[in-house]
Design a protein around this nucleic acid. Structure first.
Lengths: 342, 342
DNA sequence: ATTAGCACTCTACTGACGCGAGTGCTAACA
DNA sequence: TGTTAGCACTCGCGTCAGTAGAGTGCTAAT
């Protein structure tokens, strides 16, 4: 464990480096931070800290910068995460009110807000409807040849699709078919509706097999479609402001990665837990972001964990501030979403 | 008007510059392109072309690069736009089939495909439902306290929202209310449904005013929401591969702009026309993209123009290829979307 | 244990220099 | 008169050496 003085020095280095992105030397610390010790002493301590793995040196005659282990210690033991200010809360509330009308806009706006407040790329994983329960499907007339198929789950989510009425059937036939399917499937969890169930029902449809099969395909697709959650990205341009991305190649690599929705979802999923989780540099499993850190938190609707909010950026980031912001979102996003009646 | 030889030289310069991004000199042209004239002659011609504004010189001892006027002449008179190859069509069809399940995914995939084929940023403006006609609204039961309100238009688009059943009403009451509203509004164009109409209907609801007002607000929002079209972006990372964006500051500016959905919509809207439209460099009104070109085309569903596909990139772009791709999308995107039954 | 002093190291910046690519001009040529 | 060869000139770019500055580690004094 580090003694008080080493902690103070480490904290000073990290705080300074986070804001300036420059390696920091003993003299600077002595000058800026009033620790009551001379640069020489600080040098000795810094040498120790480097030996212990908390700091590293870009080259011999440069100052020190925090190593991954240093950041880790910082977030675990040194960092303070004050709740965000009244003022910020007001701002946020205001943004939501003026910008977000539809549910997707709430997610999009959330991503924007987070990226704006943290000056980093933000990721918002919108609810996946995995645990949803099938309630019923219903046909709604559209015109002579077409109907709308709506699938309703207990969460109030409606998937809809326009279908052409098959040859030889009228609207009422579809209505009856729907009733039969509903009787069988109502109350089933979407994820449990599998081929076997369909197979059973299919027996009931000696004639109209073709219709049934079309329907079935649509339903299956709808279910599959819902499971695939949506990812909202915010503030990719913020990346460019960071000095670690002065090199265009790095930017390109990261940006390409950010376009891989699947991958990002995976990354966020591997670390689900209740509070704010911070993954620093090499702690990330995916090699493309080993010089990045991820701060993430889940949020709930009605007690159910439904999604994740996260911030992605270089390891040099304001962990305290970011944690505060995500802590807030973790607590309130559910309520905000509820107001939009998901 | 330019004589044959000048045209050939201009074409050679543009073709070469587009692929190499390097200023091109007289020697190189003489070597690479078999025009049967010596570098000295080419030099003279190039000097003329520069005087006429078709070319410019980054500095005295560099080769020439095309000026905006040069590109303009190129796209108007020199460029060939062969239809895209059988092979590409196959690839595209395949991509759609494997990747796109829901309608939004079709747009997203379209953006990706365009950016992949053109190696530039793509923009896809999804249908706005301005000209849609209100068909009916319908309540669907969800649980004891909540219902789903679905609003159906003649295009088969369904907007849905979960509502809490107001105190003192039961599902059947809502049903009756819906019927009354439908009788009045059915067949009206969404954009014509204005406060005045609502006002009329409101007379019918001596009691239940509160319910009616809530409903009304939801409907109004739904209508407003639909009008605001969605923009899909593809291949922002492609930008970074272009040598003109070797400078991070430029990337940042452009990327920030790409996050302004509104702005992009406006830019695309100002140049709507039936075929492929090309806007080069300074021809763009918005100052942020004056060193960029935009190639855009509208697409139709059932003969109605419903959206725009576009490519945005540095003025140095493969206008021919890009035009071919957008020409294809302009023709077929409507059909593809139709297959998904929008 | 702390600190002042000092030699040492390494980077970033600067200016000089030469190379190469390309031009414009002139004069010769068909 | 249009085309071409030759040539002097210009300019950007990469290389190289030299310098300034920041920071370190070590040693000796406090």
């Amino acid at each position: 464990m580090l003694d008080e003085r080493k902690r103070k020095i480490l904290q000073a280095i990290i705080d300074d480096y986070v804001s300036t992105a420059e390696p920091i030397g003993s003299r600077t610390i002595a000058r800026k931070y009033d620790l009551g010790i001379s640069p020489a002493t600080i040098r000795n301590e810094m040498a120790d800290l480097e030996l212990l793995g908390y700091l590293e040196q870009p080259h011999t005659s440069a100052g020190r910068i925090p190593a991954a282990k240093g950041y880790r210690f910082y977030v675990d033991s040194l960092m303070s995460t004050p709740a965000i200010s009244e003022n910020d809360v007001m701002l946020i509330t205001n943004w939501y009110q003026t910008r977000a009308r539809r549910i997707e806009e709430v997610f999009q706006e959330t991503a924007k807000i987070i990226s704006r407040m943290t000056r980093n790329v933000s990721l918002v994983l919108a609810p996946q409807f995995g645990p949803a329960v099938f309630k019923y499907l219903q046909f709604m007339p559209l015109d002579n040849s077409r109907v709308i198929l709506a699938i309703v789950t207990d969460t109030g989510y409606v998937e809809n699709k326009v279908l052409t009425i098959p040859e030889g059937l009228v609207f009422d036939d579809l209505h009856r078919i729907a009733e039969r399917i509903n009787r069988r499937l109502s109350g089933q969890a979407l994820e449990h509706i599998r081929s076997s169930v369909f197979h059973d029902i299919r027996q009931d449809f000696q004639h109209d097999r073709a219709v049934f099969d079309t329907l079935l395909e649509v339903i299956r697709q709808s279910i599959a479609g819902d499971k695939q959650e949506r990812l909202y990205l915010g503030g990719t341009a913020q990346l460019l402001a960071q000095p670690e991305y002065r090199d265009v190649k790095k930017v390109k690599d990261l940006l390409s990665m950010l376009e891989e929705e699947r991958l990002l979802c995976d990354i966020l999923h591997t670390k689900e837990s209740d509070g704010v989780v911070i993954t620093i540099g090499g702690e990330n499993k995916y090699s493309g972001i080993q010089d990045c850190s991820v701060v993430q938190a889940t949020y709930r609707i009605d007690g159910q964990v439904v999604g994740t909010v996260a911030v992605l950026g270089p390891t040099r980031m304001e962990y305290g501030k970011i944690t505060s912001v995500l802590e807030f979102m973790h607590r309130h996003l559910g309520d905000i979403l509820n107001r939009y009646r998901l």
